[in-house]
Structure formats: structure tokens, C-alpha cells
């Protein structure tokens, strides 16, 4: 039982990170149909800027805020300079642009920062909390708690504000949204800004646990993308559940089956789910118009 709890908490913590990245994918995808493979770089920017600002003497909360602002700025720049000019390009071209952007941002980070790994002090100390024989880090609760807060805030934003509803309308039908007077350009910029902010917050939160470096983004983008697809692309609840599931699968796979093939176990389950449910767990079924 203690082992089970330990695995579950490990899975939930890692899963929460995947969920936040998957959420970033989903928001941008909904507003623009773009699968943004530079999503992992927002997490990197969040972690690295905080580390360097903190090392330069800023208090941790200020450093973290600065990191989020930098990430939002990068997200907006990405949208204005790279996505907007290629607006009418085929989806796969846009994907390659975001892959180019992710290589560019990694290249920039290795020049601006360095190629070392860095850490941040945990927000509430390193003393593990013992529950039912399992030892948990206080920082894990920060990650899980913040993920829940972010999700609730997004839910409120999308369902209870006019701007949020405009985003949802754009996601449902961009052309119709424009007809009823929604500024879809603004909606797209907003989606990149929000995604970048979520990524950066995730980066700040997890750095005390997972460490960070200029190239942590690639793996996160890969896992986040897989999580979003498992949950059903375009569905925020699906993204969160997909992320947590992938994290749990890896932890239980490593704990109970075989640590060498734990990533394989996660992907086998994703494949299995997609074979049965081709739209992911919570995806909308899609009818093609001829």
C-alpha cells in the first residue's frame, strides 16, 4: 500500500506537468488549429529565467513573475512574427514553423543562459511529508495545487467571461466567429499568451523537483502532445486527464513492471486507447464535409 501511494504521487506530480503542457497545446490548437511544438520551450523559459533572475538577486516571487512575463512576450512574438504571416499555410507547414521556433528558442537559451542544469529552492522546504508510509515532497503539493487552480481559473475564464466565450466560439468555427464580430486575431494572440504563461508557471513550479536546463522542452513537448492526444485534442479536460494518465502509467509501469520500458508502457496504452477510441478519451467526433 505504501508503495502504491508512492507510485501514485510520483505519477500525479509528473502527470501534472504533462497536463499543464497538454493544456497549453489545447488552448493554442483551439484558437488556431496550430499544434505548437514550441510549447515545451515555454516551460524551459519559465524555469531558466527564474533561475537566472533569482541568482541575480531578485526575490523568488519577483523572479518568477518576470519569467512569466518574458514567456508571454516570447509567445506573442512567436504568434506575430512566425504564425500570423503564415496564417493561410497548410497545417503541417505551421507545425514545421513551430518546430523551427523550438530549435531557435533552444539555440537562443544556450547562448543567453548556459548549458548547465539548474535548480531552485523548494517553496516550502525539502522535508518530506509522510502519508501512509509514502514520502512526499511539499513541492509536489505546490505543483498539484497550482495545476488545479490554473485549471479552475481557465474554466471560469472560458465559461463566464465574454472574452473567454469568444475564444470558445472561435474554436468552434472561426469563420462564423468572425461573422458575428469576434476579433479572431486578438483571440489567437490571447491564446498564445495564455499558453505561454501556463507553460512558464509550470516551469517555475517544477524546477525545484525536476531541475531545468536549456533543452528540457523537447521531451515535455513530446509527452504533452501525447497526453493531449490521449485525452482528445481540443478538449481541456481531456488534456488534463491525459497528462495525469501518462504520468501515472509511467510511474506504475516503472514501479510494478519494468523501469527500462516504462515509456513504452505509456505509449502502448495510448496506442491501445486510440485503436478503440480514435478521437481520444474525450475528443469530439468529427464529420468531414465534402
Amino acid at each position: 500500500m505504501a508503495d502504491f501511494l508512492q507510485f501514485a504521487f510520483s505519477g500525479l506530480t509528473v502527470g501534472a506537468i504533462y497536463a499543464l503542457v497538454a493544456l497549453g497545446f489545447t488552448i493554442i490548437y483551439n484558437a488556431s488549429d496550430v499544434v505548437n511544438f514550441a510549447q515545451g520551450e515555454f516551460v524551459m523559459i519559465g524555469g531558466m529565467v527564474t533561475v537566472f533572475a533569482y541568482a541575480a538577486g531578485l526575490p523568488l516571487p519577483v523572479a518568477a513573475l518576470l519569467a512569466v512575463i518574458v514567456a508571454v512576450f516570447v509567445g506573442l512574438a512567436l504568434e506575430w512574427l512566425a504564425i500570423e504571416p503564415a496564417r493561410d499555410a497548410p497545417p503541417v507547414t505551421l507545425i514545421i514553423i513551430t518546430i523551427g521556433a523550438s530549435i531557435f528558442l533552444r539555440g537562443l537559451a544556450q547562448v543567453v543562459f548556459d548549458k548547465q542544469f539548474h535548480s531552485l529552492p523548494a517553496f516550502s522546504g525539502d522535508e518530506p511529508i509522510r502519508i501512509g508510509g509514502a514520502a512526499l515532497l511539499p513541492q509536489s503539493f505546490w505543483v498539484l495545487g497550482s495545476a488545479i487552480v490554473i485549471f479552475l481559473a481557465l474554466y471560469a475564464f472560458f465559461n463566464h467571461t465574454l472574452t473567454g466565450k469568444a475564444v470558445l466560439a472561435t474554436a468552434a468555427n472561426r469563420f462564423a466567429a468572425r461573422l458575428v464580430g469576434i476579433n479572431t486575431t486578438f483571440v489567437m494572440a490571447l491564446s498564445f499568451a495564455v499558453s505561454a504563461a501556463i507553460g512558464a508557471i509550470a516551469g517555475v513550479l517544477v524546477t525545484p523537483i525536476t531541475l531545468t536546463s536549456y533543452d528540457v522542452g523537447t521531451l515535455l513537448a513530446l509527452k504533452g502532445f501525447a497526453s493531449a492526444m490521449l485525452g482528445g485534442m481540443g478538449n481541456p479536460i481531456g488534456a488534463v486527464i491525459g497528462g495525469l494518465l501518462v504520468g501515472l502509467l509511467e510511474a506504475f509501469g516503472a514501479g510494478y513492471i519494468n523501469s527500462e520500458y516504462k515509456d513504452a508502457i505509456a505509449f502502448l496504452v495510448i496506442l491501445g486507447v486510440l485503436f478503440v477510441m480514435p478521437q481520444g478519451l474525450f475528443g469530439r467526433s468529427h464529420t468531414e464535409r465534402v
Binding site: 507510485f7 505519477g11 523537483i209 510511474a251 514501479g255 523501469s259
Partner: peptide
């Protein structure tokens, strides 16, 4: 090489 949590393995 890029894993960020090894508690399951260490629990074993």
C-alpha cells in the same frame, strides 16, 4: 536520461 522522478524505482 531525461527522467525527472525516480521514486518508483527507488521504492522498489
Amino acid at each position: 536520461p531525461k527522467d525527472s522522478d525516480m521514486t518508483p524505482q527507488l521504492t522498489n
